[in-house]
Design a binder for these strands. Structure first.
Length: 495
DNA sequence: CCCTTAATAT
DNA sequence: GATATTAAGG
């Protein structure tokens, strides 16, 4: 372990890491390499110090993740103002991160746990940068002691332990500590696939971390790992189906002002849906993915909806209007007010796209065109909806949906194909949207986000999207459960 | 105990 | 930004 005699001694290294244990380990290893070490657990202080005492450091080793300042930021600042070689260091070895380090000007990227071998040669970075290195000057250790309030400084081990024994001991400790560093799990699509398989095998209701872990049989994968991933997975599923965590309405039905029965909708390329039929006025349904694809009418309606939603209903004012053909609007307003009976799995079954504005017209027979908003959780008898509709309340119904964040990043790798890669071509009638069918007779229509559709072979009728049941018995436009929906996308989107 | 969720740390 | 860890509640 001894350093060869001609080894450059006295390189002045600043180590920055918020983790005191890492700091200690690094310090010891660097000492063994005969470097002079200054440690600092706080990036901003390190920066201050580096700047105030230019020419007293030769090299900086900085962690990437730090609470007060991103390691990359520090790297950037040093590159800007000082001319020091900087080595980045992180437990995360993802290529993108390493690349980021390099592109930001790091001269090296050490993967934690750092081995002492990797530290022996870091002096070369200094030589490379400066062209030369004067190992003999000795202006560095001055008044480090006075700085102790600022940084934790140890240029030598204190204490009375015998040096030799101590070094051996610390070597052992270092090895120990290093091996204890658990590598973080990288959820590759491969691994994720196994995860999903396990989940499917169990059924989403039964899929809990422990069982999933047991099925996956990946060595070293802990229950916590799975739990964490499951948490993310569920969150993604929810969002995929439009459940919002924030209180933003995501979709609405809207009745036309003067429409009459028989409106049809066509799905057009690019995911827009246009209404046609007799005397359709304004409503164009859009399966859009961004707000600006909504037409004016719905924007206005959404605004009104938002305005009225809070003051009109409290949490427990949901009403039940009938016995059959229930449509539970439990997620009418995603977020706070819905008293969602979340199953133990935490996954809610999606009901319809929000029928809020449609309901405004028909609910309780109140002045049909007056704004009336149902509370989240309301149960609405579809036959009432239908009769109201037929009575002239809101013949032409257009549907609009926007999703600001339809595909969370975390989901991208398994619903990999961008939905847009399957353009929806102009189709015939989308009878799923035909009000005449609001009679409980179909229970398979689902609404796909944006320009996404089934293969023709999967469409018994043009434009009708079907889904192998998870929602039988619900007569309405339905979403499958988020989980089913996800699997569904997996099926219909080519690999 | 184990599970979920949210918050926070790395 | 992704994953881990922690805290709290069921």
């Amino acid at each position: 372990m001894a350093v060869s005699e001609d080894f450059p001694v006295g390189l002045r290294v600043m180590v920055v890491d918020d983790d005191p244990v890492c700091l200690l380990i690094l310090q010891r290893m660097l000492h063994q390499c005969r470097y002079r070490v200054t440690t600092c657990s706080c990036a901003t202080q390190a920066y201050t110090m580096l700047r105030e005492r230019q020419d007293t450091f030769d090299l900086v080793i900085s962690d990437v993740y730090m609470p007060d300042m991103d390691g990359f930021r520090l790297l950037e600042l040093i590159g800007l103002e000082l001319d020091l070689p900087v080595i980045m260091m992180s437990a995360n070895g993802e290529t993108s991160l390493v690349m980021k380090g390099i592109t930001h000007g790091a001269c090296d990227y050490l993967l934690k746990p750092v081995r002492i071998e990797e530290l022996r040669n870091i002096w070369q970075h200094v030589v490379r940068k400066k062209g030369t290195f004067d190992f003999n000057r000795d202006n560095c250790s001055i008044d480090w002691d006075s700085n102790k309030t600022l940084v934790e400084v140890q240029s030598e081990d204190h204490g009375s332990r015998k040096r030799k024994g101590n070094i051996e001991l610390s070597d052992a400790m270092i090895e120990d500590a290093n091996s204890l560093k658990k590598a973080r799990v990288v959820w590759s699509s491969e691994l994720h696939k196994k995860f999903v398989n396990a989940v499917n095998q169990l059924g989403i209701d039964k899929a809990v971390p422990k069982s999933i872990m047991e099925i996956m049989r990946i060595q070293g994968l802990t229950r916590e790992n799975v739990a964490s991933h499951l948490q993310k997975y569920r969150l993604g599923l929810k969002r995929l189906c439009g459940i919002r965590v924030e209180r933003l309405p995501v979709a609405s039905f809207q009745a036309s002002e003067n429409g009459q029965c028989g409106g049809k909708m066509q799905i057009q390329s690019g995911g827009s849906v246009s209404a046609s039929g007799s005397n359709v006025s304004s409503n164009v349904g859009v399966f859009g993915r961004s707000l600006n694809q909504l037409d004016r009418g719905t924007l206005a309606a959404l605004a009104q909806l938002q305005a009225t939603q809070q003051r009109q209903f409290g949490v427990n004012e949901a009403q039940q209007l009938g016995d059959s053909g229930k449509l539970c609007l439990e997620h009418l307003f995603a977020g706070g007010t819905s008293q969602e009976e979340t199953s133990s799995s935490g996954l809610q079954r999606m009901s319809s796209l929000e029928l809020d504005l449609l309901m405004q017209q028909v609910h309780q027979g109140m002045a049909p065109r007056q704004q009336q908003v149902l509370a989240s959780g309301d149960l609405v008898d579809l036959s009432i909806v239908k009769s109201e509709v037929e009575a002239g309340g809101c013949e032409n119904m257009a549907m609009q949906s926007h999703q600001r964040d339809p595909m969370p990043n975390s989901l991208q790798h398994f619903t990999e194909q961008p939905l847009g890669s399957h353009p929806v071509e102009p189709e015939g009638d989308v009878s799923a949207f035909d009000l005449s069918r609001l009679d409980g007779s179909f229970d398979e229509a689902i609404l796909l986000p944006s320009p996404c559709r089934l293969a023709d072979s999967d469409c018994p009728e043009p434009g009708i999207f079907t889904f192998p049941d998870p929602c039988a018995g619900i007569s309405s436009f339905i979403h499958p459960s988020p989980h089913d929906f996800s699997s569904f996308l997996d099926e219909i989107l080519p690999p």
